[in-house]
Amino acid sequence: MIKFKPVAVVALIGCLLTLLPMRLMAGWDELNMTQGVTQVSQDVYEIHMMIFWVCCVIGVGVFGVMFYSIWRHRKSQGAVAATFHESTTVEIIWTAIPFAILIGVAIPSAKTLIAMEDTSNAELTIKVTGYQWKWHYEYLDSGVNFFSTLHHDHNAARQLGADVDLSQFEHYLKEVDNPLVVPVGVKIRFLHTANDVIHSWWVSDLALKKDAIPGFINENWTVINEPGVYRGKCAELCGRDHGFMPVVVRAVSQDDFASWLQQQHAATDSPKSRQAVSTTSSNDVQPQRTAVN
């Protein structure tokens, strides 16, 4: 048995050494859950990391005991099996500990879940309607509304047999013709529904994901802290092009948002003619987006 010990020690040190260089951690942010740009997404990230480390400790503990027992008590070393098979004390302990851990993770989770549901006092309400296979956005306070579909160039490139160099697209299949434009620092309430089948509007940087169900209106909210472009997708299988109805949210300063809204109004003869809005706005958004970026 002494013969094996140095080997085990060397292996352990080797494992620890490989963890040291931070270069190995460089891709971590892309692998791990996003921290996002809202308070809720930050809370969700922290709960995720807390539970992740709890799982790590449990995993190392349980598998450590298991592998040690198997290694230490192997037959070739003359181990004799114990014959005990009951211990009420042990069973109470290993029932109570998981129970306490569950309560410990349930409290912060419940707090965040309750915060997520509190859509009161929103300054801006946007109705999001899922269609096969696009999104329709309607700013209920101002009447501005338009469809948002997969960007035409991306749609052409993704066709089966289309021989296109995909490296020309920075965000392949994650670009839309008309992104949703929202102000930063404002509580925005989203109303979710669908026109045909169930969709789900999902933007992970904002920690927003809600089923859009025909005949139902679900709601959630966000306050975006940083301007930027945040991308998401439909997260409920909705048919043929479920993978090709991306979400793009462009968060801009409140002044830029006000002027964008003005521009949308100007581009529309009358707010009632919604068809006209959706077609004209698609032409107007493009130059404006480059201006803000």
């Binding site: 993704r158 089966l160 995909l166 392949y172 479920h242 993978g243």
Partner: peptide, 17 residues
């Protein structure tokens, strides 16, 4: 294996899943 569509039609993909 790659983003986009390479091998099968989306409907066939969905029926595979």
């Amino acid at each position: 294996f790659q983003p986009g569509m390479q091998i099968v039609d989306p409907m066939f993909f969905n029926s595979m899943t």
